[in-house]
Amino acid sequence: MTTANQAPILSGNGVVLRPLAEDDIPRIVEACRDPRTQKWLGSMPSPYDEDDAREWIEASRLAAAEGSKITWAVADPTTHELVGAINLFDIEPGTRAKVGYWSHPSARGTGTMTEACRIALEHAFDDLDLPTVVAHAAVENTASQHVLTANGMRRVALEPGGTTIRTGKVDAYRYERHASEATRPSTLYADDVEAHQGSKPLLPRTTLALDEGEVAVVLGRPGSGHTALALALAGRLPLSAGQVTLDGSQDPTKLQKAVALVDVPGVSEPDGSVPLRTIVGEELAMAKRKASKAAVLSWLAEEGIDAYADSTIDDVPPEARVGALARLASLRPGTRFVVVTYPERHGLHPGSWLELARSLADGGFGVLVTASAAVDLPADVHRFTIGPEEGA
């Protein structure tokens, strides 16, 4: 067993946890000035500068010396560049600790924080012999919630005023995980799936795998099976060959609950004449959230798209349209994977939908986007093809 004031270097899948260093200050400042970080971490100085970063590093070291907290830089294992931070705090030896984290914007959607949280929890249970780890996340902070749920933490209570964000105290969910509860990210797997309607091919033989907290892109020509693939992944299309599984299960009910389909033509694509505010209200109600006029306008304002509240969905700019529909889909109870079908058809630039996908993945969702074979993707994005690769 190690003691709480030790911050060992811990390695995982594509990430390393290491002690904070003075060289991290510029990246800390970048991350802590980011609007999303500032929004959810209300006790963080604003504006945030290098002196704030130095004070935080020093305070973290003092807390470590007292045995009440361990803070790691979440770093790239090759470049050692900081991509986030995670800590175990309020450590009570033999009893429990709390876990908290933030990501640098460049790491969102890479699954990095989900893996970093897994490593920190493993250290808490295996090395510090703590029986319980606790976390809090604002009710509206679904990204943080999904990092926790992807690591097996269970929502156990709603605590009024349980956390502080930039606007003040807000209600928070309390999450817990006990040492006896093992977990791993879930995997959605399509193994040589193929679908036909009579003699007509709907989906050529396709294989892909997607983990929670990961972004992947499936490439294919228009009309090559984008809609059919989405339906197959969600357990909504009979297959001629192959199988789709979630953690080894082919249960279509389980797939339908876990996989949310976004803007799929002829399936989940909204009627183009319906106002955005109506769609938001329906989705919030489906997510068992407040769906009053005030709640709808509040959600739209939070997303920065309240100017389009009365616009029909077909008149909403592509980035706002796809972003709103994807984020609303992620709120549905039980959603763990989000499939966005061919956003290029709305004229949305790949950089925009990739940023959206990464932000959702940063919250623990597995995100799959279907796109044309001509799209230019960064080298680190996992990619698959509809049908044989040469046919994409």
Results as ranks from 00 to 15, higher is better:
Met1Phe: 12
Asn5Thr: 03
Leu10Gly: 03
Ser11Tyr: 09
Gly14Arg: 00
Leu20Asn: 02
Leu20Ala: 03
Asp23Cys: 14
Asp24Gln: 09
Ile28Leu: 12
Glu30Val: 10
Cys32Gln: 11
Cys32Met: 00
Ser46Ala: 09
Asp49Arg: 10
Ala53Phe: 05
Trp56Gln: 10
Ser68Met: 10
Ala73Leu: 03
Pro77Lys: 09
Thr78Met: 15
His80Asp: 15
Leu82Ile: 08
Leu82Tyr: 05
Ile86Cys: 09
Ile91Val: 06
Pro93Ile: 07
Trp102Tyr: 11
Ser106Ala: 15
Ala107Thr: 13
Ala107Leu: 14
Thr112Cys: 07
Thr114Trp: 09
Leu121Trp: 05
Thr142Gln: 09
Glu159Tyr: 03
Pro160Thr: 05
Ile165Leu: 08
Arg166Cys: 10
Arg177Gly: 00
Glu181His: 13
Glu181Ser: 15
Ala182Asn: 14
Pro185Leu: 02
Thr187Ser: 03
Thr187Tyr: 01
Ala195Phe: 05
Ala195Ile: 12
Leu203Gly: 05
Pro204Ile: 08
Leu208Val: 02
Asp211Phe: 04
Glu214Arg: 10
Arg221His: 13
Arg221Asn: 10
Gly225Ile: 04
Thr227Met: 11
Leu229Ile: 15
Leu231Glu: 08
Leu233Asp: 00
Arg236His: 11
Arg236Ile: 06
Leu237Glu: 02
Gln243Val: 14
Gln243Cys: 10
Gln250Lys: 06
Val259Arg: 04
Asp263Ser: 08
Val264Ser: 02
Gly266Lys: 10
Gly272Val: 13
Thr278Ser: 08
Val280Asp: 11
Arg289Asn: 14
Lys293His: 04
Ala295Cys: 01
Ala295Arg: 12
Val296Arg: 07
Leu300Ile: 07
Tyr308Trp: 15
Ile313Gly: 05
Asp315Phe: 14
Val316Ala: 03
Val316Ile: 15
Pro317Glu: 11
Pro317Thr: 03
Leu325Arg: 06
Ala326His: 08
Leu328Asn: 01
Arg332Phe: 10
Pro333Phe: 11
Val340Cys: 03
Arg345Gly: 02
Gly351Lys: 14
Ala357Gly: 12
Ala361Thr: 02
Gly363Ser: 01
Val367Gln: 04
Leu368His: 01
Thr370Gln: 04
Thr370Ser: 06
Ala371Trp: 07
Ala373Asn: 09
Ala373Lys: 13
Val375Cys: 11
Ile386Met: 12
